[in-house]
Design a protein around this nucleic acid. Structure first.
Length: 267
DNA sequence: ATGGCCATCGCGGATGGA
């Protein structure tokens, strides 16, 4: 069972790349069973349901015009069940979270696909919103984990866990995605019993999931690891692999993010 | 080095992203 998350920075622009990538994964013998997408930048009525259908995927969509927008794709015959949009109890204009239950070996999974706020700059209004959003996410996840012990939280977190996730930790110390406040919020999420699946394994140094479009960021590997897959305690023993696929970042008109993947074994 | 980011909205240039 393979799950993945990918901020595709406009599905209108990137749909062909998503379909190609899904096809390539399947051709390599390990099709993606669940894909969380972020930054659709389109409304639900513009979502290419039919294209994904033909590729063998069902979808749950939570779109928005111009900004944000998230979706969960599930490979047939799986379908997203009991779909929840955004964080219950937290009023938000922005479409950032979509949650569904999907069948899996060893029992159904609750999958939370999320596009965390950027935060722009410490001290800004947007940073304060990011903190409130994170507070609300944590409070809701605490309850959600009670209801659904087998839970995966994946998406664009817009936060680095530590300096290993930063191409120049000295230059970027205290800047957005690298502040103590943001990292403390990640710590509060892991304290709920969620584990960064990527660090369950030995990883090559300087493995990132995002590179700035400017200044040859990707070519120079000046990046950040801000796209994460977290698993709840009962799933830890089932985690067989967690990787980031840099290949789509080499496409002609790439997203600035690369997909992160999780493979679950039988357990 | 002459320029050196991308998507959206909408038709210029601001806004947001990270």
């Amino acid at each position: 069972m393979k799950l993945a998350t990918w901020n595709i920075n406009s599905l209108t622009v990137r749909l062909p790349q998503v379909l190609e990538w899904l096809a390539a994964q399947a051709a390599a013998g390990a099709p993606v069973d669940v894909l969380a997408l972020q930054e659709l930048k389109l409304t639900d009525d513009k979502f290419p349901l039919e294209a994904f259908h033909q590729a063998g995927y069902a979808a749950a969509v939570f779109g928005q015009k111009t900004y944000n927008g998230v979706a969960l794709l599930t490979r047939a015959p799986r379908v997203p069940q009991d779909v929840v949009r955004n964080i219950p109890g937290f009023a938000d204009e922005m479409a950032r979270v979509i949650t569904a239950t999907v069948d899996a070996p060893g029992g159904a999974l609750r999958v939370v696909g999320a596009y965390f706020p950027n935060g722009q700059e410490p001290g800004s209004d947007k940073f304060a919103y990011k903190m409130r959003w994170l507070d609300a996410l944590r409070d809701w996840l605490r309850e959600e984990l009670q209801r659904h012990p087998r839970l995966v939280l994946m998406g664009d977190f817009n936060i680095t866990f530590d300096d290993r996730d930063v191409w120049d930790p000295v230059a970027l110390a205290g800047t957005i995605h690298c502040t103590d406040e943001e990292r403390a919020q990640l710590g509060a999420l892991t304290a709920l019993g969620l584990t960064d699946a990527f660090r369950l394994f030995e990883q090559p140094p300087k493995t990132f999931s995002w590179w700035d479009y400017r200044q040859l960021g990707f070519q120079k590997n000046r990046g950040l690891r801000i796209d994460h897959v977290l698993v709840s305690e009962p799933l830890r023993a089932q985690v067989a692999a967690c990787t980031i696929d840099r290949a789509p970042r080499k496409n002609k008109q790439p997203s600035d993010h690369a997909p992160a993947l999780l493979t679950l074994g039988a357990g």
